[in-house]
């Protein structure tokens, strides 16, 4: 999986490419910190993400928990297959999804 991070002041944008699964989730978790700790606005761009499993959902959930305390988190460009997983797991109600 390829992770592209863009930090603009306290605005953090993370673009994900490939598969966010059990193997790659720890990688995202590592890349996210420590930038997210001081961010006020975090955006996940999932345009090129084809796949997400529960391990990936865990990372997104922990990011959301952090951002709930200190700012805003947005998910954008979600493909239908991933949207389906968000739907099934109720994550559509937790995450702020912009499509």
């Amino acid at each position: 999986m390829t992770i592209t991070k863009t930090l603009d002041g306290t605005n953090l944008t993370i673009a994900l490419e490939g598969r966010l699964d059990t193997t790659t989730s720890p990688q995202l978790e590592g890349e996210m910190h420590p930038d997210i700790d001081s961010a006020t606005e975090v955006t996940f761009d999932l345009e090129n993400l084809a796949y997400i499993s529960s391990a990936g959902l865990r990372v997104l959930l922990s990011a959301q928990k952090i951002m709930n305390k200190q700012g805003k988190m947005t998910i954008k460009n979600v493909c239908p297959e991933i949207m389906d997983i968000f739907d099934v797991t109720g994550f559509v109600d937790i995450l702020n999804i912009e499509n």
């Binding site: 499993s53 529960s54 391990a55 959902l57 865990r58 959930l61 959301q64 928990k65 709930n68 997983i85 099934v88 797991t89 109720g90 994550f91 109600d93 937790i94």
Partner: peptide
């Protein structure tokens, strides 16, 4: 799956996705 982010349990989500 209706709980908020703070109350969400991490476990059990995987097998739940499979069932669904």
């Amino acid at each position: 799956v209706t709980q908020s982010a703070e109350d969400r349990q991490i476990g059990g989500l995987g097998i739940y996705i499979v069932k669904k």
